[in-house]
């Protein structure tokens, strides 16, 4: 790791700690990092969009290749900007209407096929009783899973059927549907917890890589700046923690 890479990595670690400091409370370090993130993301997106889309797909086609037909989408795109004028904003409805029409035309049959028909077929699949015994027993796409899918789909649908009172056998099936939904939400919650912890683990791994790099004298680009940057960040974090602790104690004393 050379000096430039190390300094950028150190800056990254500083930003990580700044973001996590929000867990204690809002503060200027967090605010700065948040604004930096929004600004950098927007700027990066504009440049990526220019180099990967607008330049090769529109401007180069017109200016270099002289394909004049590309003026049509170009003008349609410009028409979108009339939304900024109260007087001429109606013009933007034309390209928008074309865009929505094309999108809907593409989406409706494909979404219907992928999300409704194929899912219906899957719910109506023949239950293979052979899979209840042997290795397919707890397979997510066979055996007991087929029964769970069938029963779960029916019970879930019945729970959302509001034209009949949820009493008696009907109510019991609706209750089962509710439980199935709750188990589904619980699974999502479990996965979400894992995702959030993963983000923190990634930051720990990143900090560890940076810490090792700070003291790796075998590195051919090693410089005294490396450990200094490490201790600088550490000092900053400690100073912030001490200031916050003193504030907290003062507030507690005044409250008492």
């Amino acid at each position: 790791m050379d000096l430039t890479t190390f300094l950028w990595t150190t800056f990254g670690i500083y930003l990580t700690i700044s973001i996590f400091s929000f867990l204690y409370k809002d503060n200027p370090f967090y605010k700065f990092t948040e604004h930096l993130f929004v600004g950098v993301s927007a700027g990066y997106f504009v440049i990526i969009l220019w180099h990967n889309s607008l330049a090769p797909n529109l401007f180069n086609k017109i200016i270099t290749d002289h394909v004049w037909l590309y003026f049509v989408p170009g003008i349609a795109g410009l028409m979108m900007f009339t939304r900024f004028s109260k007087k001429y904003s109606w013009i933007s409805r034309w390209p928008l209407a074309a865009y929505i029409g094309i999108s809907a035309g593409l989406a409706i049959p494909l979404e219907m096929s992928a999300r409704v028909n194929r899912q219906l077929y899957a719910s109506m699949a023949n239950i293979s009783w052979d899979n209840f015994w042997g290795p397919g027993f707890l397979n997510t796409t066979a055996g007991f899973s087929d029964i769970i899918v069938l029963v779960g789909a029916l019970a879930g649908l019945i729970y959302f059927f509001f034209s009949k009172a949820h009493t008696g056998t009907f109510g019991a099936i609706a209750k089962l549907g509710l439980w199935i939904l709750m188990i589904g939400f619980g699974t999502s919650f479990g996965f979400t917890v894992m995702a959030r912890i993963s983000l923190f683990i990634n930051r720990i791994q990143s900090m560890e890589t940076w810490r090792v790099a700070s003291f790796n004298t075998a590195n051919e680009h090693y410089s005294m700046i490396f450990p200094l940057a490490f201790y600088g960040i550490l000092l900053l974090v400690l100073a912030y923690a001490i200031v916050q602790f003193i504030k907290f104690m003062k507030e507690r004393a005044s409250a008492a």
């Binding site: 194929r118 899957a122 796409t141 996965f191």
Partner: peptide
């Protein structure tokens, strides 16, 4: 992880 549970039906349907 946040998304994973939502896509299991597509596994079951063979998509």
């Amino acid at each position: 992880g946040v998304m994973a549970a939502d896509y299991y039906p597509f596994l079951n349907s063979g998509q």
